[in-house]
């Protein structure tokens, strides 16, 4: 089975309110994207890795990976205007393969074991998800509906999909003008196949807001201290 990977590093830091792209922010003294690159560096079953990033940061990102000795198998290409478009461009930049792993640089606390377990799972399409520990209601300014949180899942990355169906689903979604915030939704909505939910981890935090980085520093220190 041939495996490729798309690593999304397309953020320009808008929600952080700062000029530095998030993937270059330091966690434990290392850029976020380097944490991910280290996690996948020893997984030889992943044959080719495409990093999608803003065109103006391709050189910086490539230089960073090279400087850390983590550029083996990795190519940097320009991402799109949206996350969905970046994934589609990343898929197009990959050589055809059986399976593709999707991950994002802003989830730096992912472990090598997370990737290995995802790859080893028998399901062709799968992602990590965790329960939602708080109440979620539907509403805009006033409550308009109640959601049963036992039926909901907090979608994490990494995710794994059969390559050809995902490429097809993306093409169909783009043609239909549909937009999705991540690929399990897109894959499911386009009827591309069953997607399995694996048990994720609270530690696999996404760095979105400034406070996330503070939390991630604490989690990283705890993880490292625990020999993880």
């Amino acid at each position: 089975m041939s495996i490729g990977m798309v690593l999304l590093a397309g953020g320009v830091g808008k929600r952080m309110g700062k000029p530095a792209p998030k993937q270059f922010l330091l966690l434990g003294g290392k850029p976020l994207i380097i944490h991910v690159a280290e996690a996948i560096s020893g997984i030889d079953s992943i044959g080719e890795i495409v990093v999608t990033c803003p065109a103006e940061h391709i050189d910086d990102t490539a230089a960073l990976l090279r400087n850390h000795g983590l550029d083996r198998r990795i190519r940097c290409v320009a991402g799109g205007a949206s996350r969905q478009e970046s994934v589609q461009l990343g898929l197009a930049a990959l050589s055809a393969c059986d399976t593709v792993i999707i991950h994002e640089a802003v989830r730096p606390l992912v472990s090598s074991a997370d990737f290995q377990a995802l790859i080893a799972d028998a399901a062709p399409n799968a992602f990590y998800g965790i329960q939602i520990p708080f109440t979620v209601l539907r509403g805009r300014g006033k409550v308009e509906g109640i959601l049963d949180r036992d039926e909901l899942v907090n979608v994490q990355l990494p995710q794994k999909f059969a390559y050809a169906p995902l490429v097809k689903a993306h093409a169909e979604a783009a043609a239909a003008g549909e937009s999705y915030t991540e690929d399990a939704s897109l894959f499911y909505a386009r009827g591309a196949g069953e997607v399995k939910i694996l048990k994720g981890s609270e530690r696999n935090l996404k760095i979105t807001h400034p406070s996330d980085l503070i939390t991630a520093e604490a989690l990283y220190a705890d993880w490292r201290g625990g020999g993880g």
Binding site: L26, G29, P31, I34, L64, N67, H68
Partner: peptide, 13 residues
């Protein structure tokens, strides 16, 4: 003496 400079980078960078 208050002048200061900083360019935070990981060791390899």
């Amino acid at each position: 003496n208050i002048a200061g400079y900083a360019e935070p980078k990981s060791l390899l960078d």
